[in-house]
């Protein structure tokens, strides 16, 4: 039976990186969880992005070898509202994606996640997304990379944004575009801390993000065939391996029943005190591995 693949996004170590943790430290923490996949944010972890020094590239590949990690997803951005009064054109958006595809390929990544600017509360992407991506499908195919837009709260699975991405896949027939699912959409209890910014600000402006949009896990059935990569968003796992917001006890069996065998790449977004993320990621992996083992034992 094919199991999940376990990875960690270095987003988990936000605020630690650059204050109490180096990229080399992060390799050690990720590898020691037993994970095999490393997800990075290009603009965060690649020095002098988008043109890293040659010596850094050498060190990058040496570290991957030393820790037996494979690059998974390369997170990048299409900053559509690039200036206060100027938006990117389709050609500029396409150029940004091409740049990130090439850099991700140089570093050995198999996925990129371009985060597009949006035009409304439901995270409808700027309309340039479609042309900007379509112009890069041949390049993505040549480089062996899948471009992943993120399905992220407050956008649920059954929603025009998600349906628009699926329609694009169906229309183009591409194998180089798929959905990245962020498990924050399944959050069903309120956040008490938010590692993405000021929780009081989102409590006031975006209560959905605090309370969770509670997407039923059964909705996975309808889109899983378009999902080659999952970002395992979470905020707090306690000493009893109980997640306070994300219902892994329902998510894991559903993914197993659907035969999902891709990555679960941890994305911790909780309290940002120094070093907390290191322990939180380990707890999440212990929790998901236990649930996966239980499911497999029941279905052996």
């Amino acid at each position: 039976m094919t199991g999940f693949r376990y990875g960690v996004s270095l987003y988990s170590y936000t605020d630690d990186l650059g204050t109490v943790m180096t990229l080399d430290d992060a390799f050690d923490h990720v590898a020691d969880t037993g994970a095999t996949g490393l997800e990075i944010l290009g603009e965060t972890s690649v020095p002098l992005y988008p043109e890293p020094p040659a010596a850094w590239l050498d060190h990058w590949f040496a570290q991957l070898e030393r820790y037996q990690l494979e690059p998974t997803n390369f997170a990048c951005w299409v900053d559509t509202r690039i200036q206060l009064d100027r938006k990117l054109t389709v050609a500029e958006g396409a150029e940004q994606i091409a740049l990130d595809l090439r850099l991700a390929h140089r570093l050995g990544f198999k996925f990129i996640r371009p985060k597009f600017g949006v035009i409304d509360y439901n995270l409808t992407p700027d309309p340039i997304w479609e042309g900007a991506v379509e112009r890069n499908l041949d390049l993505a195919q040549a480089l062996g990379i899948i471009i992943l837009p993120e399905i992220h709260a407050p956008t649920p699975i059954h929603h025009p944004v998600t349906e628009g991405y699926i329609a694009f896949i169906e229309r183009t027939g591409t194998r180089n575009f798929g959905l990245m699912l962020d498990t924050g959409i399944f959050q069903d209890r309120p956040l008490t801390a938010w590692g993405g910014g000021d929780i009081e600000a989102i409590r006031k402006d975006a209560p959905d993000m605090v309370n969770g949009i509670k997407v039923p896990v059964e909705h996975l059935d309808d889109i899983i065939r378009y999902v080659p990569f999952i970002q395992a968003k979470f905020h707090h796992v306690d000493e009893d391996l109980h997640d306070h917001q994300i219902p892994w006890e329902r998510i894991v069996p559903r993914l197993k029943a659907l035969g999902y065998a891709g990555y679960l790449s941890s994305e911790y977004e909780g309290v940002r005190d120094p070093w907390v993320a290191i322990e939180q990621v380990r707890r999440q992996h212990a929790l998901i591995r236990r649930l996966e083992a239980e499911w497999e034992a029941q279905h052996a």
Partner: peptide, 16 residues
């Protein structure tokens, strides 16, 4: 900071 991927009403966010 302006975060183009935030909903338009919240694209300008302040880090204090």
């Amino acid at each position: 900071y302006r975060h183009p991927y935030f909903p338009p009403a919240h694209q300008s966010a302040v880090a204090r």
